[in-house]
């Protein structure tokens, strides 16, 4: 049996962050230890307040060759981006 500790992907939300961001990976025997290891490895400089860990095996990634079909359609939906709309200065911040 392979006795290497499984690989975990680490996601951390920083003090002022709105969402968890992928920061890297590490090895740990289980999820609880992965969280502790993440605290020691990835928050040495006060980077985070909340940690998620996911076993790397459990992640399904899009295939890079799909880059075109997966993402290009959204590139044409520029109206999703707030700067698309011209707002008169007089109405104030929006």
């Amino acid at each position: 049996m392979n006795n290497e500790w499984p690989l975990w992907e680490i996601f951390i939300r920083g003090q002022h962050g709105m969402s968890h961001r992928h920061v890297g990976s590490l090895h740990a025997p289980d999820a609880e230890m992965a969280i502790k290891n993440a605290r020691d490895v990835y928050t040495r400089r006060n980077e985070g307040v909340s940690i998620w860990v996911v076993e790397a095996n459990a992640i399904t990634a899009s295939s890079p060759s799909d880059k075109g079909p997966m993402y290009e359609p959204s590139e044409s939906k520029v109206y999703r981006h707030p700067t698309f709309f011209d707002i008169p200065d007089e109405v104030g911040a929006m």
Binding site: L7, G24, H27, V41, R44
Partner: peptide, 26 residues
């Protein structure tokens, strides 16, 4: 100590980068 610890961290990040190429850290 903090500096040498960082080096362990750097080793760890780099092993993880290598692992994405299909080789394990062990």
């Amino acid at each position: 100590l903090a500096k040498v610890q960082d080096e362990a961290g750097h080793g760890l990040y780099l092993y993880c980068a290598a692992e994405t190429l299909g080789v394990s850290r062990d």
